[in-house]
Nucleic acid binder design. Structure first.
Length: 212
DNA sequence: CCAGACGTTGTT
DNA sequence: GTCTGG
DNA sequence: CCAGACGTTGTT
DNA sequence: GTCTGG
């Protein structure tokens, strides 16, 4: 999976886009991308902060650690994230949201990759459930995030066995607040929320995302 | 005790 | 940081 | 898309 | 250059 970056003028709940974020670009693991979280010092405030995609666990201390851990943690399985050492603290205390324009999945047919772009059938953005963490790499703080995945819904199952956890606005707020049963939120979204478009070399690089 | 792992997706 | 395996 | 590997022996 | 992994 990779991501077509948000292209709305602001995030849900009128959260402003962070400085330095260029809307509409495709995003790959290792890239910086804004995530929506509670401000760690002022939890009543929501903010959008650029973070590295690929969660670098809090015990990491070196650049080598970033490679070692952060290159393998761009997704976290919703079924296991609460228990795994790499994600469990974040599941408990550092949940976040990732607002995107679309995501891409592909299926291999022989040696061809058939690429698909998945968008919201409403025409708006998609909100993904994520986790973030902070490591101190040579004493410098590094915030990074991962996208939770769940089994594919009926629409996407043809293409791919897994999909990101996609939340409605109410569920998105509940994910941040953590006052409800979080596992109830981490389900495949209804198929009718989504629409599958073909993607190819011409339109899989953000060029069809409303620039013209 | 110490050293090493700590993850996901897709498997033409 | 915490757990597992040797 | 971009970054990194691209290998073997020997066994911390 | 080409393949893999994120």
């Amino acid at each position: 999976m990779w991501i077509a970056g948000n292209r709305e003028p602001e995030f849900i709940w009128k959260i402003p886009l962070p400085d330095g974020f260029l809307p509409g670009l495709d995003v790959f693991p290792g890239n910086a991308y804004p995530v929506i979280r509670k401000n760690p010092l002022h939890p009543e405030q929501l903010e959008a902060v650029l973070m590295r995609w690929g969660l670098v666990p809090h015990w990491s201390t070196t650049l080598e650690d970033i490679e070692k851990y952060g290159s393998k943690t761009f997704n976290a399985r919703a079924e296991t994230a609460q228990e795994l050492p790499t994600f469990r603290d974040s599941f408990q205390r550092r949940r976040c949201l990732i607002q995107i324009a679309a995501f891409y999945e592909w299926r291999k047919i022989d040696k061809f990759k058939e690429k698909h772009q998945i968008v919201s059938s409403s025409g708006g953005p998609l909100i993904l459930a994520g986790l973030w963490d902070r490591a101190f790499i040579e004493a410098e703080p590094l915030d990074s995030f991962t996208v939770l995945t769940c089994p594919a819904n009926a629409l996407l199952d043809d293409i791919h066995q897994r999909m990101p956890v996609i939340l409605g606005q109410k569920a998105a707020r509940e994910w941040l607040d953590g006052k409800t049963d979080l596992h109830d939120l981490l389900r495949p979204c209804p198929s009718h929320w989504l629409e599958i478009l073909p993607a190819n070399e011409q339109n899989n690089m953000g060029l069809d995302l409303g620039e013209g």
